[in-house]
């Protein structure tokens, strides 16, 4: 039941995230000034915190979505299997989120101010 609630919660969170994506695309279409404004907002500390939350919600929803697709194909319904896949999804979504942000920092140097 916990993963079901989290799936719904993360879905609602991602609905908000999709609006940010649209905002970003709109800014990109409006020219450099608007784009830098929006990027400044997203790159600020609260902006980064919100983006981190969205990343976590995205990975959880994505992975738990895979779990749902496996169920819909008729597999993984056993009590023990579904409990194990629940833990797997929760742990993996956390790991992937941290991995993505680490890659963003160390590999892509995507944080504001990292590249002069």
């Amino acid at each position: 039941m916990v993963t079901s609630i989290l799936h719904r919660l993360s879905g609602i969170v991602l609905a908000g995230g999709s609006l940010i994506l649209v905002l970003w695309l709109w800014a990109l279409s409006q020219g450099e000034k608007r784009y830098e404004q929006v990027m400044g907002l997203l790159g600020s500390f609260p902006g980064k915190l919100i983006l981190f939350g969205f990343t976590l919600a995205l990975f959880f929803h994505l992975l738990n979505g895979v779990r749902h697709l496996v169920w819909d194909s008729g597999h993984g319904y056993e009590k023990q299997t579904s409990n194990q896949s629940a833990w797997l999804v929760m742990i993996l979504s956390l790991v992937l989120t941290l991995a993505l942000w680490s890659a963003g920092y160390w590999v892509f140097e995507a944080f504001p101010g990292q590249k002069a």
């Binding site: 039941m1 079901s4 749902h68 169920w71 819909d72 008729g74 319904y77 056993e78 009590k79 579904s82």
Partner: peptide, 26 residues
């Protein structure tokens, strides 16, 4: 049915209603 799985978790006879519903959807 959103595959919440509570049904299968509690069934005192160890049946799997969630799976049966999934099969109906299929």
């Amino acid at each position: 049915c959103h595959t919440i799985m509570n049904c299968t978790q509690v069934c005192p006879k160890g049946l799997n209603p969630a799976k049966a519903i999934g099969e109906i959807k299929k």
